[in-house]
C-alpha cells in the first residue's frame, strides 16, 4: 500500500481516494432518492381526503428542537474531522460521540412527533398526504438510525485500531453522510414543515 503523506490521512492511499469518490457518487444517487420523495410529496400534499393536513398536524416546538439538534450534530462532526486531521484521537472520538448523542436526541423527538401525529388521527394509511409525509420523514429517520449504528462502529474501530488511513477514511466518509442528512433535513424543515404551517 503506497501512502502519500502530502495528503490528509483519509486521502492518503489510492483505495481511500476511490472510496471517497465512490461515496460522493452514492450521495448523488441519494439526492435523486430524496428528490423523488420531495416531488411526490409536493404532488400529494393537498390530497388529504378529509383527514388532517400539515396546518393541523405540525407544531413548531418539536420541529425546532429537531432542527437545532441535527444542525448542532453537523457542527460537532465537523469538529471531529478537524480533530482527526490534527491527529487528536481522543478529541475526535469525543466529538463523534457527541454527534451520535445529538442524533439520538433528534431521533427521539422525531419518534415523539410521529406518536403525536398518530394520536391526532394521522397514520400512514389515512390519506395520500399522510402516506408520503411518513414515508419522506421516515426515510430520513431511517438514514439517521443507520448512521447511529455506523458511527458507533467507527468509534469502536478508531478506539481499537487508532487513526490509520483506513479508519480515517471511514470516519471522513461517515462525516459526508452525516452532513448530507443535515442538508436533507434543511429541505424537510423548509418545504414540509415551514411551508405546511404557512
Amino acid at each position: 500500500m503506497k501512502i502519500d503523506n502530502s495528503l490528509p490521512l483519509e486521502y492518503s492511499t489510492e483505495e481511500n481516494r476511490l472510496k471517497i469518490l465512490g461515496f460522493w457518487i452514492f450521495l448523488g444517487a441519494e439526492i435523486m432518492l430524496f428528490g423523488t420523495l420531495f416531488a411526490s410529496y409536493f404532488t400529494l400534499v393537498d390530497r388529504t381526503a378529509g383527514g388532517p393536513n400539515g396546518m393541523h398536524l405540525f407544531e413548531i416546538g418539536p420541529v425546532l428542537i429537531e432542527t437545532f439538534l441535527l444542525l448542532a450534530s453537523s457542527f460537532t462532526i465537523g469538529l471531529g474531522i478537524h480533530a482527526m486531521r490534527l491527529g487528536r484521537r481522543k478529541a475526535m472520538m469525543t466529538f463523534f460521540g457527541i454527534t451520535l448523542l445529538l442524533g439520538l436526541g433528534f431521533l427521539s423527538v422525531e419518534i415523539y412527533d410521529f406518536i403525536m401525529y398518530v394520536h391526532e388521527g394521522a397514520t400512514i394509511q389515512t390519506s395520500a398526504f399522510t402516506s408520503i409525509l411518513f414515508t419522506t420523514l421516515g426515510t430520513h429517520g431511517a438514514h439517521v438510525t443507520l448512521g447511529l449504528f455506523w458511527g458507533l462502529f467507527i468509534i469502536l474501530q478508531v478506539k481499537k485500531r487508532g487513526l490509520t488511513p483506513e479508519t480515517a477514511n471511514k470516519s471522513f466518509i461517515f462525516s459526508l453522510y452525516w452532513h448530507f442528512l443535515d442538508v436533507v433535513w434543511i429541505f424537510i424543515f423548509s418545504f414540509i414543515y415551514l411551508k405546511g404551517m404557512m
Partner: peptide, 18 residues
C-alpha cells in the same frame, strides 16, 4: 409495495391517492 402490503394511499383511487 407499501400500497399493496401496508395499506398506504400513494397510487390508490381512494383517500387521495394518485
Amino acid at each position: 409495495t407499501m400500497d399493496r402490503l401496508f395499506g398506504t394511499h400513494f397510487f390508490t383511487t381512494d383517500n387521495g391517492g394518485m
